[in-house]
Amino acid sequence: MTERLDLPGAEWRGVSRKYTIVEAVGLLITGIVLTVATSIPTVLTGIQWLAVIPVSLGIIFIINIALTPRRVRAIGYMLREDDLVFRRGLMFRRVVAVPYGRMQLVDINRGPLDRAVGLSELKFVTAAASTGVVIPGLPEQDAEELRDRLVALAESRRAGL
C-alpha cells in the first residue's frame, strides 16, 4: 500500500494521547450496546444463523478499537501563516485548509468522557457546512489558547462571506 495523502514538508501538531482512551471507551460502549441489542433475536428465537450479526459487529468493533491509537496519531493540525490546516483519517484520509478570515465562530465542546480525562474538542465553523473542521483531544488549556489565537488571527484577516 502506498503512503497516505499528505502535504509535503508539513509539520503536524498531534492531539493528546489521552484521546485514545476517550475514543476506545466510546467505541467499546457503542460496540457492547449494539452487540447485545443484535443478539436479542438469537437468544429469543434460538435461530443459530442470526448470531452472525452480533458476532460480525463485535469483530468490527474490536478491530476498530485496536486501530484507535493509530487513528488518533493520524489526527493533526497546523497553524500556517494564513490558514488552519487539519488532517484526519486512516482509511479515509481528509486534509482541509481554512483561511483564518473565513471563521464564523469557534466552539469548544466537552463530552463526559472528555471531561474525565480533561480534554476538549474545538470546532471551527465557516459559512460552508461541509468544511467540518473539528479538532478533538485537546487539553483544556490548549483548546482555550488555540481558540483565542484563532479568534485573534481571524480578527486581523477579516473577510466578508
Binding site: 495523502l5 482509511m91 486534509v95 473565513r102 460552508a128 473542521v133
Partner: peptide, 22 residues
C-alpha cells in the same frame, strides 16, 4: 470557504485523490 482533499482505500491504491472546494 475552505478546500479539502480526500482519499479512500480504493483511490489510494490507484494513486488518486479527490478535491473539494467548500
Amino acid at each position: 470557504q475552505s478546500v479539502s482533499m480526500n482519499e479512500g482505500p480504493l483511490l489510494r491504491r490507484m494513486g488518486l485523490a479527490e478535491l473539494r472546494i467548500h
